[in-house]
Design a protein around this nucleic acid. Sequence first.
DNA 1: GGCTGTGAACCACTTCACAGCC
DNA 2: GGCTGTGAAGTGGTTCACAGCC
Lengths: 223, 223
Amino acid sequence: MVLRSAFEIPKATLERLTYYQRVLEEFLIIGRKTIMSKELADLLGLTAAIVRRDLSYLGSFGTRGTGYAVDVLDNQIRRILGKNTIWPVVIIGAGNLGSALAQAPGFTSDLNQVVGIYDIDQPKIGRRLGSVSVKHLRELKNDLKDTPWNYIAVIATPKEAAQDVATMLTEMGVISILNFAPINLSVPKGVMVRNVDLSTELSILAYHVKRYKDQALNALKNV
Amino acid sequence: MVLRSAFEIPKATLERLTYYQRVLEEFLIIGRKTIMSKELADLLGLTAAIVRRDLSYLGSFGTRGTGYAVDVLDNQIRRILGKNTIWPVVIIGAGNLGSALAQAPGFTSDLNQVVGIYDIDQPKIGRRLGSVSVKHLRELKNDLKDTPWNYIAVIATPKEAAQDVATMLTEMGVISILNFAPINLSVPKGVMVRNVDLSTELSILAYHVKRYKDQALNALKNV
DNA sequence: GGCTGTGAACCACTTCACAGCC
DNA sequence: GGCTGTGAAGTGGTTCACAGCC
């Protein structure tokens, strides 16, 4: 029997929860006590219906006629997303990107902390980046050995190395990977990979430009 | 009358086209002449059905019984994505992230080229990054003035500055923005913004870890 | 009266399954 | 026989519209 708990949140909703939270945190700061679905929607470029539907997955926290209590909602989202725990992040690859990420604000915040950055390139080892120093990749296994599943691993290596690193990580027991290499990692079931793929993003934007130009061209023809 | 051209490609498909292309380019290199939907699917962790459906939007390029001609398909995808043109990229913000991006392989490749990086912080101005030097933001307008819509603008500023930069860009006539700041940009209709949101990614991965742990805990209870 | 919470309709994308062509 | 291309069914997510509560 599958116990369908309250934690049955659609992927699409999940991707929006951080957005809601950002607005809520701002409202907390300025001291606003309640917020309506329409407000959230307008601030985020969504529809009120979708906001209500999303929030309804978290439980019935709204008050009809009034809206949602900002603090209650904020807390609930934090709880769901596990934002009351600090999740440790390890970065593999201390090149330009890895180094930038190690020092990026969103990467060491109230809910995440970069606890290690690894590389195999001797000259990079020992270099200090933000709050950590680059270690040799061979130390990773030992560093994670107690609770590998707890860590979020970030792959910021050249694409040639990415699959090997991913395999190594999953063999160690890591189940959450954020991949910056332009390659489709193959990983065992149960492991979640999120890809940040710059060239795909650029392609889609380029497609948008191209369509725009094609349209303009057609418009000219049809005059 | 709307002339529904062949360029009516679903968003979801569009996001996969780069993946197909990567495999195709590899096949070109190793000299394989044809490829089947099942192969592409397996290499990318997709289903054969979806590959065929995706490719069918590009036209009927496959040969029943044989598969797809690698070169033909590759060319068609390049054409659709506008990959036979080099799309110029400008980066706003020369901090850690912006600097890393300016030198990232995917960012200056056969189809994109970083043609400028801008900041307002005097000490950074003039610094050489990859193939370009940091300029003052005030020069941007002049640099883009002839064909602003052609450029893909990357926002790599602190989040406080991001909306202002976006507004500035759209007023100049930029229609494609890749945003790394953790904020929902509001832009006029017709402008496409793609967000790369590290904290959302980390949240989703953290949620995955949390679920995994909750499950393990429940399993223990139920023994 | 105002706004939430939610069935029901709708839409976009995926999967199935098979006819059509090599 | 093998594989593509595509109607038809299925699925997940969004939008509509309104009953229910303040």
